[in-house]
Design a protein around this nucleic acid. Sequence first.
RNA 1: GGGCCCUUAGCUCAGGUGGUGAGAGCGCACCCCUGAUAAGGGUGAGGUCCGUGGUUCGAGUCCACGAGGGCCCA
Length: 1044
Amino acid sequence: MFKKVSGTVNFPSLEEEILQFWKANRIFEKSLAMREGSPSFVFYEGPPTANGLPHIGHVLARSYKDVIPRYKTMQGYYVPRKAGWDTHGLPVELEVEKELGLSSKRQIEEYGVERFNERCRESVFRYEAEWRRLTERIAFWLDLDNPYITFKDEYIESVWWILRQIWEKGLIYQDYKVVPYCPRCETPLSSHEVALGYQTVKDPSVYVRMRVKGQPDTSFLVWTTTPWTLPSNVALAVHPDVTYALVQQGEEKLILAKDLLGEALTGPFHILEERKGQDLVGWEYEPLFTFFQPDKKGWYVLPADFVTTTEGTGIVHLAPAYGAEDMEMGRRYDLPFFHPVDPAGRFSEEVPPWKGLFVKDADPKIIEDLRRRGLLYRAETYEHTYPFCWRCDTPLLYYAKSTWFIAMTKVKDRLLAANETINWIPEHIKEGRFGEWLRNVVDWALSRDRYWGTPLPIWICASCGHRHCVGSIRELKEMAIRMPEHFELHRPYVDEVVLRCPRCGGEMRRVPEVIDVWFDSGAMPVAQWHYPFENVEEFQKTFPADYICEGIDQTRGWFYSLLAISVLLFDQTCYRNCISLELVLDAQGQKMSKSKGNVIDPWSILNVQGADALRWYFFTASPPGIPKRLSPEAVTDVLRRFLLTLWNVYVFFVTYAVVDGFVPTGDAPPVAKRPLLDRWLLSRLHLLVQEVTEDMDRYDVTSAGRAIERFVDDLSNWYVRRGRRRYWKSENDQDKLAAYYTLYEALVTLAKLLAPFIPFTSEALYQNLVRSVDPLSPESVHLTDFPKADPTMINRDLLEVMESTRHLVSLGRAARNRAGLKVRQPLQRAVVLTKDARLLQEPELLALISDELNVKEVKIVEDLTPFVRYEIRPRFDILGPKYAGRLPEVIAALRATDPLAVTHALTHEGRVILETREGPVTLFPDEVEVRIEGREGYVAESEGGDVVVLQTQLTPDLIEEGMARELVHQIQQLRKEAGFEVADRIRLFYQGDGRVDEVIRKHFGYIAQETLAVEIREGVEGAEVTKRLDVDGYEVLVGVARIT
RNA sequence: GGGCCCUUAGCUCAGGUGGUGAGAGCGCACCCCUGAUAAGGGUGAGGUCCGUGGUUCGAGUCCACGAGGGCCCA
C-alpha cells in the first residue's frame, strides 16, 4: 500500500532525507557495482582547486557533469567518476603569501622554500569539506574518496613521464622570448593564463617628438601607451606602402601617416610634402634618452608590415626587450638591446632618475621629463583592454625572458585534426572560439619561476652543458650522485639531487623552474592512474573520455591543455563530447562579482527552493551555451510550474489509490481495452521516452527537459483534469482500474525519466510508488534501467486527433468567452467542422468536447452555410511556389469574387475558376483558407480549417439547468465553509422564492448526487449552517447539516 | 582592430530547409472551475521580430552594411 502524501511539500527537507537514504544504503556505490563489467562510459572530472569556496557557477557545471553519467548509468553503462583536485600553482602560492605576509620571492626564500611549500600543501584542502558538502547536497555523484591529487609524487612522476615523451620528440626548448610577465609573482604566464585576465583600463596615450638627425625643427611623431619603454627605444618602424606626410605646424615640421593627421594633430597645420614609408627607411633620429651606450647601430627608421594606420601616428617605436614584434625586428636588424627593468618590474640603476620605481608608476614622471624638454607633443589617457595577472591582478609587462617552451606550433595541424573529432556543445565552439584558438596557437610557455609546482625535470651538466630530461623516479635514482635524505618530487628536495652526466660524467643540476599548473590538469587522463608505472589497463580502458563538461572559460584552459597533451602524446583527442557552459549571470544579466555585491550564494537557493529546482532551472532555462540569468524568483517559478505540478499529480494519485486500496500488483487491463484517454496518454508517454532518449544521446539536456515539462503539463492539465471523476466514482470497475494503472505507469516512467535530472524528487516518487508495493524492485530509482520506448504503443493518429480535439475545445471556449456565456450555462448545440475525419470515429472524443464545452450535442457537419458567413484568404505557402510572379494577379482575382460563391464552388465542385487578365486560373480547396463569422444566433471561432459554432439561444430548460449547476456550485462552497469533509453526506435545506424552488424540485436528483445530499427538505429547520444565495438573480436561503 | 555568440511581448525564452493575422511560460486584465483546492483552467491586452539596404511573388528566417550587449583574442 502507498504511503499517504501531503500536498504541501518542503523540497529541501525531502532532499535531506533522501541524501540520508542514499548514504545509509550506499546507493551511489551500488549504482557503480551493478554495472561493473558492462561497457564503459568515461567521464573526466576537471579538477577544482579546493583553496577557495565553490560558487554558483560550480553548481551549474556540477549539475551538468552529473546528469549525463546518471543517464548513461541507467542506460546500462559503467560510469566511474573519479574526483580530482588541482593543487599546485600560483593561486595556491598567493594565498599562502597573503597568510604569511610575504610579498616577494626574496621574502619567500628567506622564509624557506621547504616551509613555504609545506604551507601550500596544507592550504590546498582548506575548503575540501565545503566542496564535499556542496557536491553531495546537489547530488553530484562523484567518487570523492579516491581522488587524483596533482601534488602526489605518483601524479608528478606521470607528468615527468609525459614531459620526457615530449622531450624525446624534440619539442621542448629554451629561448629568450618576450613573454607576458607578472612583476609581482615574478614569473612569465602562459597565453591561456593571460587570456584569463583582461581588464579595461586607462593608460597614458602619448605623442612624442623624435627629432630627425640634423634637422632640429623636424620630428617623427610617435605614439605609445607605454612611456616606460621609451628609454629602451632603439628604432622606429613605418609601413613601407603607407603614405606619410610632412606637415608644417607653427614653427615645427612633423612626419606622420597622412591618414592619421586629423586624429593625431591638434590645431591647424598644412601639408608640405607626401612620401611613401619606404622613402623614410634609413632616416636617423636623435635618441630621447642617453642612458646607455649602444654597441650597435640604432635610432633609425625600419620598414615593417605590422604597422597599421588604425590608431596612433603610423610610426611605431621599437624596444626589443618589451614586445614580441620589437624583439623580432631587433634580431632581424641586429639592433641594440636595452633592458633596464628588474624582475620586480622596477627600473634598475641603469636608469638613474627613476631607479627603483615600478615602471608603470614611472610613466607620469617620464611624461613630465619629456614635456620639460619639449619632446612631448600630446599626452592623454586612453581606454583599452590590457592583460592582468589572473590571480594577483597586477598589470602584466611584456618582457624578454629566458623560458622553456613546448613547440605547439609544430603540432598545430594535429591539434586541428584532433579537434575535428570532438563533438562540441554548442557546436560553434569547434570552428569558432576553440578552432580560432588552435589556428592561432603559439608555443606553450611551460616554465614558471616559482616554488609550489611540478618541478621541470631537466638537469644540465655543469661541465659539458649536456641536458637531460628525467622521465621517472627510478631513472632519477639510477643517475643520482647525491640524493637528499628526505625525498619527494618537489622543491627544494629535487633541487638537491645531483646527477652524473651520461656524456662526460660531470655533475648535473636541475634547472630552477617549475611548470605551468595547467599542464598538471591537462595531464590527468594519464596521471590520474600513475600511468605508465601502474594501472596500465585502467588507463587504456578510460582513454579517451566520452564526456567532459566545464565553463566556457576553460576553452583556453583545461579544454586546451587536455587536448594539447593528448595530441603531443598520442596524436588524438582525449575527449569525444564536450559541453562548454556559459556563465551564470544575475537577474539583470550582469556578471556576478564580489565588488558588485550581486553574488548569489548557492546555499540561499539550496536551502529554500532545493537542489532539484536549481538543477531543473539550469537544465531548462536556456541551452548550455547561452548565459543563464539566475534569481531566486526564477527558481521559484520552476518549482511551482514544474516540480509542484508533478508533485500535485503524484499526490492526487496516491490520495485516491489509498482510498480505493489500489495496488498495482494485479493484472493490468490490456492497453487495447483501456479507454481512449488512457491510450492517448500512453502514446504520449512512449513518444516522450523516445524523444528524451534521442535528445540525451545527443547531449541535448535542455530539449529533453523541455519535452518532459510539456508532458507533465499535459498529464496534469488534460489527462488528470479530464479523468478526475474516474478515480472518485464509487464503482470499482474496469474503467477505474484502467485509470489507476495508466496514471501509475505514467508516474513511474516519469520518475525514471527524471532520475538523471532531479534525482531527489524522482527518488521520492519511486520509493512510494514502486518500493512500497514491490519489495523485489531495485532499491533506488537510480538502480533501475532507463525506460525504453515501445514504438507499438505510439499511436500517432491518436495523438494527432487528440490535438484536433483540444484545438476544437479551445475554439469553443473562445467562442463562449466572446459571447459572454459561462461554461456553467449549458447550451443546446455545438456545430463543428473539422478536416480531421478521424474525429467522427471516436465517440469518446465527441463526448469529451460536449463535456468540456457543456453542450447537449456536438454535431459534425460538412456545410456551415446555415450558421456562418465566409471570407476567403489565399494560402500563400501553396500558391506562392505555384504562381510565383503571377501571384498578385491571382490574389486580386480571388478578392474580387464573392466568397460564398467561391466556398460553394470549392465545396461542391472541388475547385473554382477565377478570371484574370492573362486568362482563367483554377484554385483548389487546399489552396485557400476560409474564414468564418457566425450568423444571428450563433457564435463561431475558427482556425486552421477547424470551426466551432455555438448556438447561443437559451431555452427555459437550459436556463434552469444552468441555475441547478450554479446552485450546486454554491452549495459546495457552503459545505466547504461549514468545514465538512469531502466525503461527508449531508441533509440539504432550502427556502426561497418560487423560481429557485422550482429548479430544485426539477433537478432534485442531480443536485443531491453532486452535493452528496441524502435528503432535500423545504424549510431550514435543523440546518447547521444557512446562507442566503443569489442564483442568477433569484434569491434562496439554503442550509446544510452533516449526517453523522 | 579581429573572432565567436546574442538582440523576437513588461520579464525569461521557442521560432529545421524563406511562405504572409509572429509563439510559450511568467507577469497583467477579465472570466471560468471547484472532490489535486493557500491549487487549476480559459480568454484577452501587449511585439517597428535592433536598424538600414538587398535577394525574392514573399524575409523574424538568406546576404551586405551598421548599432547595442556578452565572451574571447590582439
